[in-house]
Design a protein around this nucleic acid. Structure first.
Length: 479
RNA sequence: CGGGGCGUGGCUCAGUCCGGUAGAGCGCACGGUUCGGGUCCGUGAGGUCCCGAGUUCAAAUCUCGGCGCCCCGACCA
């Protein structure tokens, strides 16, 4: 039960975030360094995220499977960039059953290697392709600095791993998933994201191309919210994933992998929430509506509870996820604050005056205070609630989009870039060289986020070195 | 691995400088009161003061050693 107030976003964004996660009971610190416990409310949110994605993956031909979370160390040696990228953050099991193991086993930081190994067994013919498998689970990376949801040692995700006959098909898959991620973020999460391609330095270890969706948080830092990789034949060559084509010629597969992690919950929090607590988009909120009855004696209680119960039944039958808060030991005012902290999109208050008038009171979470309160007729309530939830969802997206667009700037020159990334995103021409990228990072701690797929066209000059540039890129400080 | 801070009831912390019967607020339990924006009053339960060694008649407090956590950088979904 939360009693004291959150720090405000403006006084300490980081502390606001930490306390919000704890007080809203999304997660708690685990007694294991860098790990979190996802509490029931946080997990319910994660389940809503997963179930939408799962449905979408299945509709596009993917199937689910499970691979071991322990991976022979030698597997990591097979792809040079992959081992360099992941070795520093592996946790390794050296003993089992009291005996030292002959070969240490890594706790999976990602599963390309073990899945690649299995694919080489399973794929023999062009008839076996494509293979489109998704694994739901958790992985472990020994991060040096952790933060609940955003970067924990163990985190939850799905990882898709696909194998295809041709480069065209693999690229098509990479972008198909990126589109699903974009649709998910915008439509379900109300988070406006930018689709694009990562620079060579920001690319996934072992990939030929990494794409991402990037979101702007309320502190204007960037959060990579989903990622989809094209591997070419890198992993197929490392793990010997070959098939015989129609001409009876041995070919290497083209593979992809992609993921959205529990970090997305961090993105939801930092995009929509306010100084009163969590604000969740209705389409993902575990509880979309809470009904709070108000009365001061038994006679009132009887009437109010009768009305509250009938409202509850009607909305439940309409398929709305809701709760009736009939706790007697706390005051309505306490409940208001409590559910606001938890981010429930719509609160319905029912008091004696409402019962008399045949109304209920709506209080929108996204519009705090009096401005978000309206009185609604009791008749036809389910329809009114449905459309209010749609309105709130749209309002959240509109607000986040306006905020993002207001904080992306095109710099006049390099000095201007340095100034902008202090408190916003830069959108600028870039020659594509790692040197220029590194200079920006050294000078400002900002990195390239991605090269958006949607380009203005034409050409310009690199904001850093002044050489000709064909693409524009986003620079921002990331999470 | 560098730089800062901190380990005292469930939580946040005071007490440490200057050694002398372990405290507060919140939370929790019970009773009453209240209820359209975080009610108020009363009663009560709850502590190896991070660990170890030393100094002392006496250590949460002083000395030495260890462990752990948080924040800021380098690694990252």
């Amino acid at each position: 039960m939360a009693e004291d107030k959150l720090p405000t976003r403006s006084e300490n964004f980081s502390e606001w975030y930490n306390q919000l996660v704890l007080k809203a009971e999304l997660a708690d610190y685990a007694p294991v360094r860098g790990c979190m416990v996802v509490r029931p409310y946080g997990w319910a949110l994660w389940e809503n995220i997963c179930s939408w994605l799962d449905r979408e993956f299945k509709e596009t031909g993917h199937v689910n499977a499970a691979f071991p979370f322990l991976i022979p160390m030698s597997f990591f040696e097979k792809e040079k960039e992959h081992v360099e990228g992941f070795s520093p953050e592996l946790a390794v099991v050296t003993h089992g059953g009291g005996e030292k193991l002959e070969e240490p086993l890594a706790v999976r930081p990602t599963s390309e290697t073990i899945i690649g190994h299995m694919y080489s067994k399973w794929i023999k013919s062009w008839r076996d392709l494509p293979v489109l498998i998704v694994q739901w689970g958790s992985v472990l990376r020994w991060e040096l600095r952790t933060k609940l949801f955003l970067r924990t040692a163990e985190f939850y995700w799905h990882e898709g791993h696909t194998a295809h006959a041709t480069k065209e098909e693999a690229l098509e898959e990479t972008y198909r998933i990126l589109d699903i991620y974009e649709k998910f973020a915008i439509q379900e999460g109300a988070i406006p994201v930018i689709k694009g391609i990562k620079s060579d330095t920001e690319r996934f270890a072992g990939a030929q191309m990494t794409t991402s969706i990037e979101a702007m948080m309320q502190d204007k830092r960037a959060l990579q919210s989903g990622t989809s990789h094209y591997f070419g034949t890198n992993f197929a060559k490392a793990f010997d994933i070959q098939y015989l084509d129609r001409q009876n010629t041995l070919q290497f597969c083209e593979t992809t992998s992609w993921a959205i992690s529990s970090r997305f919950i961090g993105a939801l929090i930092m995009t929509h929430s306010d100084d009163h607590g969590l604000v969740l988009p209705p389409r993902l909120a575990p509880t979309q509506v809470v009904v709070v009855p108000i009365y001061k004696n038994d006679a009132e209680k009887a009437k109010v509870m009768e009305a509250a119960d009938s409202v509850f039944q009607e909305l439940k039958q309409a398929g709305i996820r809701l709760k009736l808060d009939d706790r007697e030991e706390v005051t309505p005012g306490f409940k208001f604050n409590d559910w606001e902290l938890r981010g429930v999109p719509l609160r319905i208050e029912i008091g004696p005056r409402d019962v008399e008038k045949g109304t209920v009171a709506f209080a929108r979470r996204d519009v705090p205070g009096k401005a978000g309160k309206t009185f609604v007729p009791r008749a036809g309530l389910a329809g009114a609630v449905q459309s209010m939830l749609v309105e709130i969802q749209a309002a959240l997206l509109a607000k986040a989009t306006a905020f993002r667009d207001a904080n992306i700037h095109e710099p006049r020159d390099y000095e201007d870039l340095k100034h902008i990334v202090e408190d916003g995103w830069v959108f600028a021409w870039w020659c594509g060289s790692a040197d220029c990228e590194a200079k920006v990072k050294d000078d400002t701690r900002a990195t390239t986020r991605n090269i958006p797929l949607e380009q203005p066209g034409g050409a310009g000059t690199c904001i850093v070195c002044g050489r000709p540039a064909e693409k524009k890129v986003y620079f921002a400080r990331g999470y």
